[in-house]
């Protein structure tokens, strides 16, 4: 009994850090969300639930940002998960060439998001960008687009960059999951006359469920918080078409000087992420069990 009490003390430093850097700011944000603090002065007024009412019923941009977030998340989750899984299957064996390609695909992960954003903003540039230039040289001018300037296209262009930057990282998780599948299971299904697709459906996919759960949950949270990439590539524009919740919160607080309202938006953002993540875990947990 005494021994276990002692162990609790080891948790204290971590707990203290968690309380100081997570719980305290979160609670502070919660308090702030009931005020009209504009970020500079030492005076503010309590406004009750006004900020929350405004967020839910009187702010079209918040709804637009949420819709953009969901669009972005869906595209990134679907493509990042499937592409990383395909890469992992193709590069599963530890041959020299596979190890090289794994390292190559993982490489974008180690570049900072801001650098990735600047590189791709330049690639996508309609006037001097290399993408439209290459399409033109290949005789595919018709495919050249205003990648970041077209409000209908911009969010998908950024989603592509997100997938490019992180598919390699997710591939590594899938490779680890795939390599842990016992070879005997494949031998058994192939002896029973299964096709490759049947082997994937009945062995690979169920066995990598824990890895898929991690990949999907991580990708969801990351795509919801893709602040740096969007901020550096489009700043939320044009016409709010790439404004997501995190960039909108930033704009509300630091450009609009409405810290109280931005705090309410942050609380809403936290609840939305928690709900989506919980839903995903429930869904994937059910599947994996």
């Amino acid at each position: 009994m005494k021994h276990s009490k002692t162990l609790y003390l080891f948790v204290l430093p971590g707990l203290f850090m968690y309380l100081l850097f997570f719980v305290y700011p979160t609670l502070n944000g919660l308090v702030l969300s009931f005020t009209d603090w504009e970020g500079i002065s030492s005076h503010w007024n309590w406004v009750g639930f006004d900020n929350y009412k405004r967020m839910l019923f009187n702010d079209d941009i918040f709804q637009t940002a949420l819709t953009n977030n969901l669009k972005f998340m869906l595209v990134v989750v679907i493509f990042q998960t499937s592409i990383s899984l395909i890469f992992a299957i193709l590069l599963l064996k530890n041959s020299k060439s596979n190890v090289f390609f794994r390292a190559l695909y993982f490489f974008p992960t180690i570049i900072s998001s801001i650098s990735v954003a600047f590189i791709w903003a330049f690639v996508f540039n309609p006037n001097v960008g290399v993408l439209n230039l290459l399409l033109g040289k290949a005789g595919l001018e018709a495919l050249a687009q205003n990648w970041l300037g077209d409000p209908k296209l911009a969010i998908y262009s950024i989603a592509f960059v997100k997938v490019w930057a992180h598919a390699g990282q997710m591939m590594v998780i899938f490779v680890a999951g795939l390599q842990s599948i016992p070879e005997e299971l494949y031998e058994a299904v192939y002896l029973d006359g299964a096709t490759n697709w049947q082997a994937f459906k009945n062995v690979t996919w169920p066995m990598i469920a824990p890895a898929a759960t991690i990949v999907v949950a991580y990708t969801t949270i990351q795509s919801f918080k893709a602040f740096d990439l969007i901020f550096a590539m489009t700043g939320g524009g044009p016409i709010y078409s790439t404004e997501i919740l995190s960039t909108y919160i930033y704009h509300t607080a630091f450009q609009g000087s409405e810290f109280g309202y931005a705090a309410a938006q942050s609380m809403g953002f936290m609840v939305i992420i928690a709900l989506i993540t919980m839903g995903q875990f429930k869904l994937l947990k059910g599947r994996s069990s």
Partner: peptide
């Protein structure tokens, strides 16, 4: 210029 909404200040 063409695609002006995709053109930044520097470009």
């Amino acid at each position: 210029q063409k695609d002006s909404l995709g053109t930044s200040k520097d470009i």
